[in-house]
């Protein structure tokens, strides 16, 4: 897994959680609305707290979700560029 640092692109996100599989996030700056699954929303949540590498993200998510880190590595690796394309996160250069 790459050691690039990632951060949430915007602080101004409004979350709506109905306790279902999908959470909705409204990006105030772009006006876009996204439905994110639990893992995606946890990633954006964590990156809103501060910049993290993919490995740091996996380790924090694994603790929070109580799953082995190895199970999450591939998912997080796929997820980061997708969230980048949605404009929710970006790599720290």
């Amino acid at each position: 897994m790459s050691s690039s640092l990632w951060r949430a692109r915007k602080a101004d996100l409004i979350w709506k959680d109905w306790g279902e599989e999908l959470r909705v996030v409204y990006d105030v700056a772009s006006g876009d609305t996204h439905a994110l699954d639990r893992l995606s929303s946890e990633v954006v949540d964590l990156l809103q707290e501060g910049s993290l590498t993919g490995q740091q993200l996996v380790s924090r998510l694994a603790r929070g979700l109580r799953v082995p880190p190895f199970d999450l590595m591939r998912q997080v690796e796929d997820l980061l560029p997708r969230l980048d394309r949605l404009g929710l996160i970006d790599p720290v250069s």
Binding site: L22, R23, V24, Y26, G31, A35
Partner: peptide, 21 residues
């Protein structure tokens, strides 16, 4: 689901993006 209901409604709204937050 609620999230899908919201997204479908937003897609059918005339002024959702204009009203913003």
């Amino acid at each position: 689901g609620k999230a899908d209901t919201l997204l479908h409604c937003a897609g059918n709204a005339f002024n959702y993006s204009v009203l913003g937050r």
